[in-house]
């Protein structure tokens, strides 16, 4: 009797490619989820990625869909140019915290404020990864980084920035949710959030924003398992999970 295939590798990731992301990093997981959602929607060939700089930028080697590698912080501007000219495609930006919330804060906010019809996937791990563990705007108070060797101090560095809450102050955005990939339930919720965002985009609803709290064991100086504990014990109290806005649900 032939076996039924109930789980297959997403077409969104290059076949047989082995990830070069650090052990315990969640970029691989999120890439897989994006690919799976596009597969399940039957939209894999319509997917366009506007990719940020940093570890996010390594994703270009693994994904199979059209991508524009964007200058540091400018993914939301480039995605505006892409989506406005390819309205039938499914466009998402893939950006880390330095890219989206520091150098690209203006582009992020104004794309959200215009209600651009694409999806932002925001990877928040509280640190600059590729450049070697410098302070990000999302770095927790007290957290050590290579540019805050004594830990982040509010008086000197300000406080962790809450992007989902800030974007929630704007009128235009349609859907805002913060999730994590720190456990299987979180991964499932993250996938559902990406699916919801893509569905809303496909229906032309406007700006959708999924913030995913992830880990950076390498720059946090933790092993992958301890990094999961760190997310739950330290990151999530600062960045509480949940749906901040879902205009689709309100309309129902």
């Amino acid at each position: 009797m032939a076996m039924e295939k109930v789980y297959r590798r997403t077409t969104g990731i290059v076949k047989d490619m082995v990830s070069g992301f650090c052990p315990g990093c969640m970029h691989g997981t999120v890439h897989k989820l994006i690919g799976e959602v596009a597969d399940e929607m039957g939209r894999a060939n319509d997917l366009i990625r506007a990719e940020g700089i940093g570890c996010c930028g390594l994703g270009q080697k693994y994904v199979t869909h059209d991508s524009a590698i964007c200058l540091h912080g400018r993914a939301c501007a480039a995605a505006t140019g892409i989506k406005r000219n390819e309205p039938d495609s499914l466009v998402y930006t893939y950006q880390g915290d330095g890219d989206l919330a520091s150098i690209g804060l203006g582009e992020t906010m104004l794309a959200a404020n215009r209600g651009e019809n694409f999806t932002v996937i925001f990877i928040n791990n509280g640190i600059y990864g590729m450049t070697g563990g410098q302070m990000a705007p999302t770095t927790l108070l007290g957290m050590k980084s290579t540019t805050t060797p004594k830990g982040r101090i509010a008086e000197e560095h300000g406080y962790p920035i809450h992007m989902s809450e800030i974007i929630d102050q704007l009128i235009a955005p349609y859907y805002i949710e913060r999730t994590t990939c720190a456990d299987p339930a979180g991964v499932r919720k993250t996938k559902a959030a990406i699916r919801k965002a893509f569905e809303y985009q496909a229906a032309g609803k406007g700006f959708t924003f999924v913030e995913i709290v992830t880990s950076c064991p390498t720059n946090w100086g933790l092993d992958p398992i301890s990094a999961l504990d760190f997310i739950k014990e330290k990151m999530l109290p600062e960045y509480p999970l949940g749906v901040l806005r879902d205009k689709g649900a309100e309309e129902v």
Binding site: L71, A78, A79, G81, N85
Partner: peptide, 26 residues
């Protein structure tokens, strides 16, 4: 066609980058 008032020169030129990448004369 599409006109977008960018929030800055930096945003505008990156919109140009994205738009040009789609093959639309921009």
């Amino acid at each position: 066609g599409v006109f977008v008032q960018g929030e800055s020169e930096i945003a505008s030129v990156n919109m140009l980058y994205g738009a040009s990448s789609t093959g639309t004369r921009s």
